[in-house]
């Protein structure tokens, strides 16, 4: 009856024989830790890259997207809780999809990249890693959409085969992480720094929830930290909250609050701050930080006008916009 300690994430779950970690999907069987959702995704889709959201990474391309059950956070506002807050065997739909099949299907579907997304890909770490290695060998890119609650060693190893990541920075406040997500802030900040150091293209999403993390001083502190630790060219997506899961008593974020938060972040010096979930708003589009030229006009996930020159340069001043461009 050997208890094992999972060293993947900062929880360091001590898991007795027959038990599961906090994520529900990593279980101890006879002293061996088993990744129960390996090759068993419960969600498989083709999405536009803009849905991740990634606005500076191969814009307008399709990305093959997979997820398994489970998560190592327990956010009260989770929009995918049917997926994230269940274990693998509780799912109605489970596909048999070994890494080779995922890559082969992505290629068949003319996708140039694969996203590990929807729930928390870090808890199906081995599946992500093996798929990502094969994908790279076949010329595909790999994208992680994550909350970033992971230890440094596994993250650095995974980065060898990652090309881009969108990290959900839930709030710039440890109390928020503890009370709303059942986690802590510092490991997430550490993960963001690691991704930058490992030269994975990085964009950040911050969901603005009225009354909980919409304080402008918090937005200012977050933007300042991003500017100083990750670079002013790191795109930040400020997304509109909608009532979900255990947080249906809070109204959607007013559009004005999102615009004020964006203004605050841009005043700090961030070059690319986007408002999400407000289709039609000007702040969905990309502008040159030097001369203000409209570079990519978007409506929701749709690119309506693409004005970047090859290599991601502004057609007016030739400034190179940070990102990975076609």
């Amino acid at each position: 009856m050997t208890t094992v300690v999972c060293e993947l994430c900062p929880r360091y779950c001590a898991i007795p024989d027959g038990g599961a970690g906090d994520c529900r999907v990593r279980i101890n069987l006879d002293g061996k830790l088993i990744a129960t959702t390996f090759a068993r995704p419960s969600s498989v889709h083709i999405d536009p890259m803009e849905k991740k959201p990634l606005f500076h990474f191969l814009p307008g391309t399709s990305i093959f997207s997979i997820a398994t059950a489970g998560c190592n956070l327990h956010c009260k506002n989770c929009q995918n809780w049917q997926l994230s807050q269940h274990s693998g065997e509780e799912m109605d739909t489970i596909f048999k999809a070994p890494p080779e099949l995922i890559v082969k299907t992505a290629i068949t579907q003319s996708c140039s990249s694969i996203a590990y997304t929807y729930s928390e890909p870090l808890i199906f770490y081995e599946y992500v890693n093996e798929t990502a290695i094969i994908a790279h060998h076949r010329g595909l890119k790999n994208v992680l959409v994550t909350a970033g609650y992971v230890n440094e060693t596994p993250l650095r190893q995974l980065c060898k085969n990652l090309d881009a990541a969108n990290v959900d920075l839930k709030a710039f406040d440890d109390n928020f992480y503890r009370q709303v997500c059942g986690a802590t802030l510092k490991p997430v900040l550490d993960a963001l720094v690691v991704l930058r150091q490992e030269e994975v293209w990085l964009e950040i999403t911050n969901l603005i929830i009225p009354g909980l993390n919409d304080d402008l001083s918090m937005v200012r502190r977050m933007a300042t930290w991003i500017r100083d630790e990750l670079g002013k060219d790191t795109p930040l997506h400020l997304s509109r909250f909608s009532p979900q899961y255990q947080m249906r008593n809070i109204p959607p974020t007013p559009s004005e609050a999102l615009r004020r938060s964006r203004e605050e972040a841009m005043n700090v010096g961030l070059e690319h701050v986007y408002v999400g979930n407000l289709p039609g708003d000007d702040s969905e589009s990309t502008y040159c930080p030097i001369d203000g030229t409209l570079l990519i006009k978007r409506y929701g996930f749709t690119i309506q006008n693409y004005n970047l020159l090859k290599g991601g340069r502004c057609p007016t001043c030739k400034h190179k916009i940070s990102g990975v461009w076609l």
Partner: peptide
């Protein structure tokens, strides 16, 4: 599918 052993764990 066979069970897949995880990375990154140690005996308690």
């Amino acid at each position: 599918l066979p069970l897949h052993e995880a990375d990154f764990y140690a005996p308690h």
